[in-house]
Design a protein around this nucleic acid. Structure first.
Lengths: 261, 261
DNA sequence: CTTGCCCACTCGTCTATACGAGTAGTGCCT
DNA sequence: AGGCACTACTCGTATAGACGAGTGGGCAAG
């Protein structure tokens, strides 16, 4: 067992860099160099206090920095750990292409099982409501919309929360208003109903989660969310669906293929 | 001038929610309700201490939470302010399409001026180097690559830092190895050199910035970065360029249009 | 009137202490 | 063998105080 000094070094009292930043630097460097690996427990606050000869608040300040950077997570009663990188789910840009519309299960389920994960969907909610200003504008100002909410989990971990909005005049009293819209999902139903899909617009943002999103997605601190808003247009140019998705950023890579011409 | 109590309310001593969270909640709610607007100064730490009757560390803890959420920014000597939302730059998926290749200026410059901003590019660096494992794999394992680094600013604010990598055998002693590759950028040069471009692959991730990225992009705390890696392929299927881009997430929306078939 | 200093106010850093609460192992008691 | 209590260790929350450093306004000296 190597000494803490050999792993973390010592403070430089002549430096004008704040002590807690020096401590954070030392820990960050040790993590980068592989002295601590994913899931490893970092030295406890008490050990760091003793090693660096500073007060506990200073140590906590340093650890808090690492958590904000997404490098570490603390667990009450256990310790502070190097944040494990979960397996990422790759979302291909053509995942909604007609030829990929699976006739049995939802796309999420198929992909997750192919990747060796256990998929779940919960928090299902289908209701009629008045659209927000943003959603309303994207859908051509319908008075009411059908909202389909659901949360996706992989191996028990929530990774994504999505809401689909459809103009109510289009979705009411159709399979789309059912909790399970049937094989191929709502896009298959829309096409059966005569709304042949032409293209999708996707808008991607990244930001820190709201407290509600932290709860829903059980996010560790230092993990942003990817906010994706997809609008589906039929061949007549009508926006027939808006899907608002919030994803745990550490669980996703979005992949797009674009023509060069 | 409304009293602090009418804006922030009071603590609930019977609640088991931590005091600093209650204070953060009160401030967050006041911001959400528009009692404080973008750029407004929040009550000073001292005022919050007096109002809530708690110690300064508790108040700082609450303010720190808001900063991690990206809701507030502190300025030494001045105060804590509601974080202003900068204008976002919209990156369209077809921005590199051949027909959009401007013959005079760089795409960044054209777009920025169209949006009424003052564009700058700095930190230019062009050098030959050994590729990282990741870049090497994407480019088909060249021994060395040409790296072109640059930083983009809008109205003096850094928003994006990008590095292009090209196999050295392809780029050496060409205009691509010059600081200014000429009209239409390196994609125009590549096509002139016989590498007609076929398509691009883009991979998008979001995460918290490293300390180096915080410096380079002058990021406030609570602002993630969008990490985009674009690989350009010629019609023969060869990867001819990888562009690794780190963007301030609060300055960008990425927009993609996808066919439905 | 201008310059420059000082002061009041801001947040930043750090110490020292206290108690609460979650976790896990040990060992006793049943 | 099983269950439970105790305990030692972890991080979480909160207090009180001190000094440092950046900002900006006012006041006094030139």
């Amino acid at each position: 067992m190597p000494s803490l000094t050999s792993v973390l070094g010592v403070l430089d009292p002549t430096s004008d860099r704040a002590v807690f930043r020096q401590i954070a630097d030392a820990l960050r460097e040790a993590i980068d160099k592989g002295r601590f690996r994913e899931g490893d427990k970092l030295p406890s606050e008490t050990e760091l206090v003793d090693h660096f000869g500073v007060s506990r608040m200073t140590v906590r300040n340093a650890l808090s920095l690492l958590q904000q950077e997404g490098l570490a997570v603390s667990e009450h009663g256990k310790g502070v750990f190097v944040r494990p990188r979960p397996p990422v789910r790759r979302l291909a840009s053509n995942r909604f292409a007609r030829r990929h519309r699976d006739q049995g299960k939802a796309a999420f389920t198929v992909e997750a099982e192919a990747a060796g994960s256990r998929p779940e969907v919960d928090n299902l909610e289908v209701k009629e409501e008045r659209p927000s200003q943003d959603i309303s504008a994207r859908l051509g100002s319908p008075r009411k919309v059908l909202a389909r909410r659901r949360r996706y989990l992989l191996d028990g971990r929530p990774v994504e929360f999505a809401t689909s909005y459809l103009p109510l005049d289009l979705a009411r009293n159709t399979p789309i208003a059912q909790p399970n819209p049937g094989p191929g999902g709502i896009y298959a139903r829309l096409e059966e109903m005569g709304h042949r899909l032409d293209h999708f617009d996707e808008e991607i943002r990244a930001r820190m989660p709201s407290p509600a999103e932290v709860r829903t997605l059980q996010l560790a601190s230092g993990v942003p969310v990817i906010h994706l808003v997809r609008t589906a247009y039929d061949v007549e140019g009508r926006a027939v669906e808006v899907c608002d998705t919030v994803m745990a950023a550490d669980a996703y890579v979005l992949a797009y293929q674009l023509p060069a011409n």
